[in-house]
Design a protein around this nucleic acid. Structure first.
Lengths: 209, 209, 209, 209
DNA sequence: CATGAATGAGCATTCATTCAT
DNA sequence: TATGAATGAATGCTCATTCAT
């Protein structure tokens, strides 16, 4: 109801907000929105609860801010998928980049998965807007490649879903993956192995004879 | 932590426990463990909170019970993967069954995903035990098929992970899938389309020339 | 948003609710809505805060319940003002009853005053409805008495306001009244003195020569 | 509790203090002492919260300062009641002035009412001192008029209370008055109507035959 | 003078669990 | 078995006040 006074940000404000967002990412991705407490986040950010609430008005505001940034980074690899490049190497790069993100930013992946799992209560508009638009656009690019015979014919949407699912799996189901692979194969090399496998499936599999 | 006194159960007890577990599945899969409340579950099961706690000692006990059953059902398709069958049709069936489960039991899938996402705090022993054992065993079956040249050579573990990831995606990321596909392609037929795509990738792709 | 489950009330429920309402009346009338805390009320009612919230869902619900009852009792004297009685003795009785209420139920008077002072944020509908309707009706009765020459002609609405103001003053401004009157005249007899004065002003003053 | 160091004030200090007091009057009269926040007052005064607290050490200090001024203005009409004037026209003027104050300074009236309602926790000394002294004095003046037969015999204290109550009612119970009078009679003319009624009651009614 | 930053104490409300019947 | 009643421990958020600059 109240008018948001759009506070101009000082340097300290910006820095502290980053601190908070980082701590929040850790906590939210681990416990989900409801499972996370402001206390935990404040602790992680090294400040008191009321002080944290001086930078963000509410738990939800932190979450929303996180989500907005997240989506942008998260969609970056897909956004780079280039119409004019070579289809095979474009797809290969896309898968590589997605896997790298799963390896380097697993918290972001889990935060996103958490939100979608619960029905995307706080992120739906972005899914319907930005995300859908981008996917539609890139699906069209892929369809073009198919029509021109540069990759075999298949469903571009489900192709994208599958790439998402398989790559993000290494972040979202990390504990399971590592446990199943065991100490011998569950180290960092698992990402190399996954990359090799996924290329075989998606890249070789899509290559016309 | 306390030793469970193994109470003998009457028929009524068993029925009520089922009622509770069903309600709990609904709530837990929707809100996660911490986000769910006993009140909601009791409501869903049509009984009072203390009465519910007569059948299960605590919120966690419900969750654990649910998880135990879940894993068994969840692994059933993989367990059916038959050593002596035809590899190609075995894999095809496996993918089909997993997709059917994603379609028919999305709550179970989400509950499982939720748990793993949070680091499997309550299910780790089963992952390390039952699940890992089964995967190891079936990976060996698949390896056997590869060695005998009946399917092409690749990594059986990552193959299993990929089948899990892609099929479960249709349950866990359901909102996103339907939103992106839009009203025209996001109906029940999405499972058919997915099946067709996944067979192309996994079955045709693994076929030796 | 949630559907109110209309709880059937047990005897204990009813008794405890009364206890709470009584304590709340004490606290609210003393500190106002915002100034009162649930802790204070729970303390006054001899129970824990969560226990109190088992009987009333929120602070506001207590206040609303209190207000609803209040208005009914509060308007009772005016409601008894009888069309067919003798105007002079009707007015005399009305003033007496209002003064008795100020003496015997000062907390109710103050609670009401508090609410109106703050712009009646939680009671406006009742003012616009029940209260206005009743006043309109009784103003018409008084007007009738005037038209028939049984009391002198004046404004019936402002007459009612003045009776309200003067009688309630002995509850609402009690501290001031007692302080000004001092120990000699500020005891219980102040109500007798007030009654005598008010009758002189309102009753004798309205009498036609 | 600490001894106030009597700070000498610059002109700017004085101006800012006025700004603050005006904003505080608005807020305190609307929400009561506990319901008001320093933030709201600082906002209303167009300054930051710590800056406001540079001019007044605490919320309470603002309130006390406000109360002290208030009482002086508030008692001015009574103070003007003149021993040597004509009793009837003195009383008439007194009522007029009090009604004008209710019309022009309703916030002051409500602030005062609020404080008394809560038992005058912060203003008691002034009630016992300044206010009581003045009332005693003026009651004696009125008694003199009665003894000399210039107005009829009645209780001067309760007469003063009644004039207070009835006039202040138009400020303190403003919402109720306007709601009951409705759009047709609840405009600014309500003060004229009230004045006419009150004169009839108090002035004509006190006139010896 | 002015303000951004920080905090301890408080507050309404929720929730898992226990107790008595 | 079943439930009404009770509560300790959170939990999100507010607010008067202080501190540093």
């Amino acid at each position: 109801m109240e008018a948001e006074k759009p506070r101009r940000r000082t340097r300290i404000q910006t820095e502290k907000r980053e601190l908070i967002l980082d701590a929040a990412l850790e906590i939210f991705s681990q416990h989900g929105f409801r499972g996370a407490t402001i206390d935990q986040i404040a602790d992680g950010a090294g400040m008191s609860k009321p002080n944290l609430l001086y930078y963000f008005r509410s738990k939800e505001e932190i979450h929303i801010t996180l989500m907005q940034r997240l989506l942008t980074t998260w969609l970056a690899p897909l956004r780079e998928l280039d119409d004019v490049g070579d289809p095979i190497s474009e797809l290969r790069s896309y898968i590589r980049r997605k896997l790298e993100m799963a390896r380097d930013y697993p918290r972001e992946s889990r935060l996103f998965a958490n939100e979608i799992l619960q029905g995307a209560p706080r992120i739906m508009p972005m899914i319907e807007g930005e995300l859908k638009t981008l996917v539609d656009e890139k699906a069209e690019v892929i369809s073009g490649w198919m029509r021109s015979g540069r990759i075999i014919h298949t469903d571009p949407y489900h192709l994208i879903f599958s790439i998402w699912a398989t790559t993000q799996h290494y972040a979202d189901f990390d504990v399971q993956v590592r446990t199943v692979l065991g100490p011998l194969r569950g180290g960092e090399e698992r990402f190399e192995d996954a990359a090799r496998f996924l290329e075989q499936i998606f890249v070789d599999g899509l290559q016309p004879d």
